[in-house]
Amino acid sequence: MNIIAYIAVVIFIVGFICKVRVWTKVPAPLKIVTTPAPITYPGVILRMASEVFLFRSLFRGNKLLWLGGWIFHISLLFIVLRHLRYFFYPVPAWIMSLQTIGIYAGYIILLPLIYLLLRRWTVEINSYISNAMDYFTLFLIIGIAFTGILMKQYIRVDLVDVKAFMLGLLTLHPTISPGDILFLVHFLLVLFLILYFPFSKLMHAGGIFFSPTRNQRDNAREIRHITPWSNI
């Protein structure tokens, strides 16, 4: 179990970095920003923030999907933050303060997940564009949420064991993993998710920052935009 965990984490980190490195290295030879667009850097930061935190373009494209997508991501954020309590000893106060909202988020997240799944299944155009991995990713996350809720609500696991195990992993002094099946399933699914992350569409989390139609300034006439190969 320890080895699997380390392998998954290493693949995640290396894979993520490699992908981002490629994106950084490939030039954007032309100004292709989608206008109207900001002219200054602070404007670009504001535009990116509105995309990253509020999903502005998606809001303009499809309100219901926006609602589903946004609730899903914000829930995920609180869930991940809440789970940090298993990686710190003592647990910092700010993580403790997120305990209640994090637990609610863990239940709420099922709603958008089920909506996203049903949408792919039942709406004709979405069903047409969905492939096996789109469903797989949703099922994987639903599985993680479901096992998480089971542990929290119905079949309690020994959290002291779990925390000792996590701290062991984190401090590179691995201990024997807890024997609790439900925890192991939950943990393995998470490991699989992060292992799969760099090879999948989940990389949209990084991709958005490299999108020339969103991160460029609209100043083509004012400042000559040149990159090595295009300056021929």
Binding site: K19, W23, S57, L58, G61, N62, L65, G69, R119, V123, I125, N126, I129, S130, N131, D134, K201, M203, H204, G207, I208, S211
Partner: peptide, 8 residues
């Protein structure tokens, strides 16, 4: 690399 086929 980035499309998630959200359908927007």
């Amino acid at each position: 690399d980035t499309c998630v086929r959200c359908g927007s």
